[in-house]
Amino acid sequence: MDQVSDFLKRLFDSNNWPARWHCGIWTPFHGWLYIISSSLIAMAYFSIPVILFYLIKKSKNHLPFQKIFWLFILFILSCGVTHVFDALMFWFPVYRMSALVLFVTAITSWMAVYGLYKIIPSALALKSPAVLEKIIQERTLELQVSNNHLQQLNSELTLAKLESEKLMKQKEEFLGIASHELKTPLTILKAYTQLLSEKTDGEKITQTDIQNKMRVQIDRLALLIYDLLDVTKIKEGMLVYYKKRVNLKHIITDVVQDIRHTSLSNNIILENIVDIEIIADRERIAQVFLNLLSNAMKYSPAGSPIIITVQKEEHTIICAVKDQGFGIPQDQQDKIFEKFYRATGGHRDTYPGMGLGLHIAENIITNHEGTIWVESEEGKGSTFYFQLPIASEDSYLN
């Protein structure tokens, strides 16, 4: 301990040693080369900590392994100080102070070594720029996929919203049309009922005439109700079909006769009606003809011909109902078989109907393994076609 105490007391004492210039044989060139080299090394050692400190400052304390940076700053500063004292020894041989600086440098050196050893696992876990670039590309791709998925969901939600708004609009239109369509025949029936109760013998209108007109309105009201019931069954998949071998010509003839009993305003013409059998629900196929003929009569001028044809092909028959009405705009022809859809434009909006007949007809034909379509030109009328398979010899009933 006495030596340590004496060492510290005489830390800057240089009396026991000569200046380095006088130790050995130094030429001026050799000496100054040593001094200048040590000085330049010291300046470099002092510059490096300044740069490291600037880097830490600019990184706003986000630099990884920041403690190691501070250890290196201390270590490099200590190394610089040793070179300063190494150069000063040529004039001031303070070997005790130089030894202390070397001791401090040794401690900081091993602290830096230990610090480096401790961070090896964390350093090895760091991603290389190439790996980071790959990760960024993968994450970017994932974000793009997620963004595309969100855009798709947004588009689907937008379409669902538009579809919902469309359905709500159709519902409101349907309620308005339905209330009007159901109220009209009831109002007429009420008027004829009142007329019957107030009729006098001197009036020309007969009771039979009134009853016939009342029957027309009752049939109209019943048809509206049946259409509503059928649409509900179609939606729930509960529309029942009783299929058997039936004669198509007989179905057409019966439907036309029924219409002629209730309406004389149109001229229904049967052309080339092939006498052929199909496997079908007789009432439902009759309903298809009734709906197509009702539409044709509704939109055709009074007295204009409505032509029904049946054409036989190899395994199918094609039925057609042609009218001389307003025709259907091209942009609406794909929509007329939709539920509650009614063609618009011109005088069409003034005609009654709920937009159910064609929708029901399409469902019936589809369930008979057939197809239905329309060909129309504005101002030249429309022709509705449907195709059904012919009953073969070995056809069986479903």
Rank of each mutant, 00 (worst) to 15 (best):
Ala130Trp: 06
Ser392Pro: 02
Glu172Asn: 15
Thr158Ser: 15
Tyr242Thr: 11
Ala130Thr: 07
Phe72His: 07
Pro185Leu: 07
Arg20Phe: 15
Asp13Leu: 01
Pro28Gly: 01
Ala19Trp: 09
Ile279Lys: 04
Ile269Asp: 06
Ile307Tyr: 00
Lys60Trp: 06
Tyr45Lys: 10
His250Gly: 00
Gln311Met: 10
Val255Glu: 00
His180Cys: 05
Asp281Val: 04
Tyr385His: 14
Asp331Tyr: 12
Leu63Lys: 07
Phe72Pro: 01
Gly176Trp: 12
Val310Leu: 12
Leu11Lys: 06
Tyr45Ile: 01
Met89Thr: 03
Ile107Ala: 13
Phe326Thr: 15
Trp32His: 13
Ile68Ala: 13
Ile73Val: 01
Lys9Trp: 01
Tyr396Lys: 13
Glu271Met: 11
Gln324His: 09
Leu356Ser: 00
Glu156Ala: 14
Ala391Gly: 02
Ile135Leu: 13
Trp110Leu: 07
Leu293Ser: 03
Asp258Pro: 07
Asn61Cys: 09
Glu283Gln: 07
Ala112Leu: 15
Leu88Cys: 11
Thr105Pro: 01
Ser122Asn: 12
Gln3Met: 11
Gly379Asn: 02
Thr366Trp: 01
Asp258Cys: 05
His30Cys: 08
Lys339Pro: 02
Gln257Val: 09
Ile41Asp: 01
Tyr241Ser: 08
Thr158Val: 13
His359Ala: 06
Tyr192Gly: 10
Glu198His: 07
Phe174Ala: 14
Leu116Glu: 11
Phe69Ile: 14
Ser14Met: 07
Lys190Asn: 13
Ile306Asn: 02
Asp6Ala: 11
Tyr351Trp: 04
Pro49Asn: 04
Trp26Cys: 11
Tyr242Ile: 14
Leu40Ser: 05
Ala343Pro: 04
Gly353Val: 06
Pro329Thr: 09
Leu224Tyr: 07
Phe384Cys: 07
Glu173Ile: 10
Asp219Gln: 06
Pro185Gly: 03
Ile285Phe: 02
Gln66Thr: 08
Leu195Phe: 08
Thr108Leu: 11
Lys335Cys: 12
Lys339Ile: 05
Asn267Leu: 00
Lys169Val: 04
Gln144Trp: 08
Lys235Ser: 10
Thr193Val: 04
Val84Leu: 10
Asn15Cys: 03
Ile273Thr: 01
Asn267Asp: 02
Tyr192His: 15
Ile41Phe: 03
Ala99His: 05
Ile318His: 04
Val240Phe: 10
Arg220Leu: 09
Ile276Asn: 06
Tyr242Ala: 13
Ile317Cys: 12
Val131Arg: 09
Val246Arg: 05
Phe337Lys: 03
Arg10Met: 08
Gln330Met: 07
Glu338Ser: 13
Ser59Lys: 12
Ile390Glu: 09
Phe340Val: 00
Lys235Phe: 09
Met97Ser: 11
Val50Asn: 07
Glu277Lys: 01
Ile76Cys: 03
Ala130Lys: 13
Lys244Asp: 14
Thr105Asp: 02
Thr108Gln: 04
Leu221Asn: 05
His62Leu: 05
Val94Ile: 15
Ile317Lys: 05
Val231Gln: 00
Glu362Thr: 05
Ala123Glu: 08
Gly176Phe: 12
Leu153Gly: 06
Arg96Glu: 06
Ser39Asn: 10
Thr82His: 04
Leu52Val: 13
Val216Ala: 08
Leu157Gly: 00
Glu283His: 02
Asp227Lys: 12
Ile205Val: 15
Ser395Ala: 14
Ile317Val: 15
Gln151Ser: 10
